[in-house]
Amino acid sequence: YIGSKISLISKAEIRYEGILYTIDTENSTVALAKVRSFGTEDRPTDRPIPPRDEVFEYIIFRGSDIKDLTVCE
């Protein structure tokens, strides 16, 4: 799965898409590269977040912050 395009939804209901870079089982983290944030879209939340235009080089997510993770390709 390393190198695959991943769609990830955080506990804050924010969806991110990026390339799976590393999975650290010891620290329970997932790192994505070339990440875009799509905001909360239409998911119900107390704090709606708009999508962002910039592409983040890397984002490291803690396993406890991840609600859903899907391989896109």
Rank of each mutant, 00 (worst) to 15 (best):
D53Y: 10
C72D: 07
D68E: 07
E13N: 10
E17C: 05
P44H: 02
A33V: 13
I49A: 07
F38W: 02
I9V: 06
P51K: 15
P44R: 13
Y16S: 00
V30R: 07
T70S: 09
K11G: 06
V55P: 11
D53Q: 08
R52C: 13
I2N: 02
R15N: 00
D46T: 11
P48A: 09
Y58L: 12
R62E: 13
E13T: 05
E54S: 09
V71D: 08
I23M: 12
V55K: 07
I66R: 00
Y21N: 14
Y21M: 14
D46G: 13
K5I: 10
S10V: 05
T70H: 05
T45W: 03
D42P: 14
G39E: 03
S64K: 10
L8D: 01
Y21W: 07
D68W: 02
I49F: 07
F61L: 08
V71R: 11
G63H: 11
S28M: 03
A31S: 14
C72Y: 06
I60Y: 06
I6Q: 02
R15W: 01
V71F: 12
I59L: 14
I14A: 08
S64H: 05
I9K: 02
K11F: 11
I6P: 00
P50N: 05
P48C: 12
G63E: 15
K67W: 04
D46I: 04
I14Q: 06
I60K: 13
E13S: 08
S37Y: 08
Y16G: 00
I9G: 06
D24H: 05
V71Q: 06
V71H: 12
E26W: 06
E41P: 02
V35G: 06
N27Y: 03
T22K: 10
I60D: 06
N27G: 14
R62P: 14
F38H: 04
V55C: 09
R47M: 15
V30M: 12
V30N: 04
L32D: 07
S64C: 13
Y16P: 01
I66F: 05
V71W: 09
T45E: 05
K67Q: 08
A33R: 15
V30E: 01
E54Y: 09
N27I: 00
L20S: 03
V30W: 15
N27E: 13
V35P: 00
G63W: 06
N27M: 09
F38D: 00
R43I: 00
K34V: 02
L20F: 08
I60W: 09
Y58D: 10
E26L: 11
E73C: 10
L8W: 04
P51T: 03
I59K: 15
T45L: 01
T45M: 06
T70N: 10
K34Y: 04
K67D: 05
S28N: 12
E54M: 05
Y58K: 14
A12K: 15
D42R: 08
T25Y: 09
I49W: 06
R52A: 09
D24G: 07
T29V: 11
D42V: 02
A33C: 10
E41C: 02
S64E: 12
T22F: 11
K5Y: 08
R47K: 11
Y16C: 01
A31F: 03
L8E: 12
G3M: 03
E73Q: 10
V55R: 10
K11R: 12
Y16N: 06
L32I: 13
D46E: 07
E73D: 12
G63F: 11
R36C: 10
D24V: 01
R47Y: 15
R15T: 05
F38E: 04
I49K: 10
E41S: 00
R43Q: 01
I14C: 13
F38Y: 15
L32F: 05
D46S: 08
G39F: 04
F56P: 05
G18H: 03
T70L: 05
F56L: 14
I49E: 14
S28Y: 13
N27D: 00
E26Y: 01
R15L: 00
A12E: 14
D68G: 14
D53F: 04
Y21S: 15
K11M: 14
D42Y: 04
F61W: 00
I14N: 13
E73G: 10
R36V: 13
D24W: 03
L32E: 08
I19W: 11
K67H: 00
I59M: 13
K11P: 02
S7M: 15
R43D: 07
D53H: 13
D53P: 09
I59Y: 05
T45K: 04
P51R: 06
E17M: 10
P50C: 07
K34H: 07
P51L: 05
T25P: 13
L69D: 03
D46M: 15
T40H: 02
R52T: 09
S4P: 04
I60Q: 13
E73P: 14
C72I: 13
R36M: 09
I60V: 13
V30G: 02
D53R: 08
S4C: 11
R47W: 10
T70Y: 03
E17W: 01
